[in-house]
Amino acid sequence: MFDSLTIFRIVKTGFVNYWRNIWLSAAATMVMTITLVIFSILAIVFGITQFSINQVTDRVDVSVYFKPGTAEGVIEQFASDLKKKPEVSAVTYTSAEDALAAFKATHAQDQLILDSLDELSDNPLPATVQVKADKIEDYPHIAEGIQNGGYKEHISKVNFEDNRLLIERFGKASKLIVVGGSVLVAIFSIIAILVIFNTITLTIYNRKEEVEIMRLVGATNWYIRGPFIIESLLYSVVATIITSALVLALVSKLQSSSLSYISGTGEGNLPLFYPYGQWTYTIPALLLIAILLSVASSMLAIRKYLKI
C-alpha cells in the first residue's frame, strides 16, 4: 500500500506530533503507564500467591509408620501397591536402619542422644513410607485408604500434615486478587482509552488546518490517519518502557528478599506471569496490552472526528 518513503514520512510526522503536544502526550503516556503498572503488580501478586501455594503443597505428604519387626518384603509390597494408584505421584521407603543412620547423622554433635541410643537394645525408629500425591485434595483419601487397607495390622500410625486449610486460604486470596485486580485493570483500561481518545481528538483539532490542506492536495486517507496512530503507538511504547523499568526493579528486589522468606531457601524463580514464569514475557505482554488499548482508542477518535 505504501512505499518506504511514505511510511518514513508518516512515522516522522507521528513523532513530531508527539513532541509538539508534549504535555498532552505526557498525560496520555502517564495514564497508560498507571494501567500497565497496576496490571503488572496484579500479575506479580498473583505469581507470589501461586508460588506460595506450590511451596506449601510441596511440603505436604502422608507418612506411614510400620510396627517394629514388620518384614521388609511386606513394606516393599505395600509401597509397590501404592505406586500403582493413579493419584499417587511418589512413594519413598525408609527402612528402620536407614532412619536410625539418618537420625545419628543429624545428631552427630549431640553425645547425649547418641549415648542414649546406644543404651537401647532395639532400634526405636520405625520403618516409614512417605507418599506424595499430585493433587492436594487427594491426601485425605489416600491416608484413609492406607488406614483401612490390607496392611492395617502392620501399620502403627498414619500421619499426614493437613495443610489444606492454609492452601485453601491461599487459593481464596489468589482468587480475590485476580477478581479485584481485574476490576482495577478494567477501570484503568477504560480511563486510558478515554484519555487517549481525548488526546487524539485534541490533536486532530489542533491539526485541523493541516489535515484540511492534506486532503486538499490529495493525501490518501491512511497518509492523513497514519501519524495519529503512530502518535498513539508512541504512548504505548513509552509507557511500556517506563513500566518495564519499574516492574523489573521491583521483581529483582522481590527475588532476592521475599523469595527466601516464602520458600525458606531463596531458590527458584518468581513466576511473574504465572504459568510462564519468565519475566522476559513481561515486556512483550505489556506492550501488546498497551498497543491494543491505544490503537483502539485512537481509531475511535479518528473514525469519529477525522473526516476524510
Binding site: 486538499l216 493525501a219 490518501t220
Partner: peptide
C-alpha cells in the same frame, strides 16, 4: 470510490479565498 478520491484530487488544483497555507 472514496479511497480513490485523493488520486482524483491530485489532478485538480484548488485555490481558496482563505488561502490555507501552513
Amino acid at each position: 470510490k472514496v479511497s480513490d478520491l485523493p488520486y482524483l484530487r491530485r489532478k485538480i488544483g484548488m485555490v481558496f479565498q482563505d488561502i490555507k497555507l501552513l
